[in-house]
Simulated assay, not measured.
Amino acid sequence: MEIRELREIAEFEQVYELFDGIWHPEPRNVPATVELMIGFAHTGNYVAGAFDGDRLVGASVGFRGGGRSLHSHVTGAAVTGRGIGYALKTHQREWCRKKGLDTITWTFDPLVRRNARFNLVKLGARIEQYLPDFYGEMADAINEGDASDRILAVWSVREAAGASPAPGVATCPVVLEAGEDGRPVAGKSEADVVLVGTPPDVERLRREDPAAARAWREAMREVLGGLLEAGGHVVTLTNHGEYVVTKH
């Protein structure tokens, strides 16, 4: 697999088609237009593609944020399980090193367990903020019908990748978990370290039981969002898909 920055209109058109195949967005909700990618690349921002031979199999678009930071706006891969996302992130990190940047930020849906595991465990990014309905209504096949709550992730360019050591969690209380019907059950605890569960597959849940998916959204906003707003910190994600949150 070859990862490289993109410069030609035909390459940006391939990225547009790749993203369209992943998200199937309505015209008013495309992740990045060809014109925007051209503008980003021309002004020294990050637009890169992953190629398997001549075929584009993944792409990432980002722009410089405040201070010495890159905001990774959208990253997508045509297939899963081939390490395309990790390869793009690694390339993006090296690009930032060469440009003298210190951090990479991006947002992700706190309900999507596999993304949380990738970001927190594999990459070792840290969570900085819970952002309720960050993008407003999103008209695409993955997000439609749900509020666009997001978590702001921050990844150090200089530090070693990988998750932080997790505190012992075997006896930590769970303050959000799935009940017998799959719907969220929220609780409270005075413990210093708590676990916040996630649904196994929220994207499937949105298709099969939209009301349950919305219940998870509301519960996650109240529980995880509330903990972060009160000064809590997410340490990592357990093997069972629970956020490990320290309150101090």
Rank of each mutant, 00 (worst) to 15 (best):
K188N: 14
S148T: 07
G168I: 12
A230R: 12
V185A: 04
R126Q: 10
L101Q: 01
V202I: 14
D109I: 04
V112H: 02
L111I: 01
I104V: 07
P167H: 10
P199G: 00
A147E: 09
E208P: 15
S189V: 05
Y135M: 05
Q129V: 14
A211E: 15
A153G: 09
D192A: 15
A213W: 08
P184C: 02
V154I: 13
L111V: 03
T90I: 14
E222F: 10
E190A: 15
H91F: 13
G168F: 14
N119I: 06
D140H: 11
T90N: 11
A166T: 13
I127N: 08
V157P: 01
V202Q: 13
A141V: 09
N119Q: 07
D102C: 03
A139M: 13
L88V: 00
K98V: 10
E94Q: 03
V121L: 15
L176V: 03
I142F: 04
V193N: 09
D201S: 08
G226F: 02
E218M: 12
S148A: 10
G182I: 00
L123C: 05
G187S: 08
E180W: 05
M220E: 12
G179Q: 03
D192R: 15
T105Y: 03
A212H: 06
E177N: 08
E128W: 08
V193W: 14
P110L: 01
T103S: 10
A87S: 11
K122S: 12
L195C: 00
V175K: 01
K98N: 13
L111F: 04
R114H: 04
P210D: 12
A219M: 02
V202D: 02
A191P: 00
L205S: 01
T103M: 07
A186F: 06
A211R: 14
H91M: 06
A160Q: 15
G100Y: 04
L111G: 01
L131F: 04
L111P: 00
L227H: 10
K98F: 14
R214I: 12
L131Q: 05
G124K: 11
R206G: 08
G197I: 02
L228P: 09
A125S: 11
R207N: 15
W155Q: 09
Y130W: 07
K122N: 11
R183F: 03
P173S: 08
A163H: 07
P173M: 05
D140V: 08
R113H: 11
F118D: 10
V223L: 02
L228K: 09
L195S: 02
T198I: 04
E218I: 09
L228F: 11
V154N: 11
R93L: 04
G145P: 06
P165R: 05
E128M: 13
K89P: 01
R150E: 03
G197F: 04
W95A: 02
D181L: 01
A160D: 15
L120F: 13
R183Q: 06
F108L: 06
A178I: 01
R183D: 09
V193S: 05
S189T: 00
P210M: 11
G226I: 07
F118G: 10
R217H: 13
D140I: 04
R204V: 14
W106Q: 00
P210T: 14
A215T: 05
L152V: 10
F134C: 12
V112A: 07
G136A: 07
Q92G: 05
S156P: 14
A186E: 04
